[in-house]
């Protein structure tokens, strides 16, 4: 499998484990008094699971297995594909840090992390659609 696919899949596995640990922590809040920071992680849990794990795994496998774009560029733009990887992961990590901070202290100026995270993840998703669209070929 290509190097980028390995990065996508290994990163998705890390998010999978992180999401499940977060789920455990969120469930524990009903039994024990945990820091308020933990209770603010609900939306982060969903997005680590569905974007960091499921969607990123799909990105990696699609990049690897879909029909070739051309003989010269079998997987479309490799540069764009690497950019997608970094944009998605940077955006998601920024959200994981910024969202609970912004929820707990809305006036402390952490809102910009969410705005930047939104732009990074949107760019990653859009880049993936652009790079993949022409590889969806009828035979």
């Amino acid at each position: 499998m290509p190097a980028l696919t390995r990065w996508f899949i290994k990163s998705s596995l890390l998010f999978f484990v992180a999401a499940l640990i977060l789920a455990l922590a969120l469930a524990a809040t009903s039994l024990w008094e945990l820091p308020a920071f933990v209770r603010a992680l609900g939306p982060v849990y969903f997005h680590l699971f569905l974007v960091g794990w499921v969607t990123q795994l799909i990105f990696g496998v699609v990049y690897w297995m879909f029909p070739k774009y051309s003989m010269e560029k079998p997987r479309g733009s490799e540069r764009l594909a690497w950019a997608i990887f970094w944009l998605l992961n940077a955006g998601l990590i920024l959200r994981a840090v910024g969202e609970p901070l912004n929820t707990l202290r809305p006036d402390s100026g952490w809102g910009w992390t969410l705005a930047i995270s939104a732009l990074l993840q949107w760019a990653a998703g859009t880049g993936f659609v652009i790079n993949t669209w022409q590889r969806v070929k009828e035979r």
Binding site: W112, L114, A115
Partner: peptide
């Protein structure tokens, strides 16, 4: 993703 980005942006700013 576009709708999600708008929502997340709005959450921050």
């Amino acid at each position: 993703f576009t709708f999600g980005a708008l929502l997340l942006y709005h959450k921050g700013i």
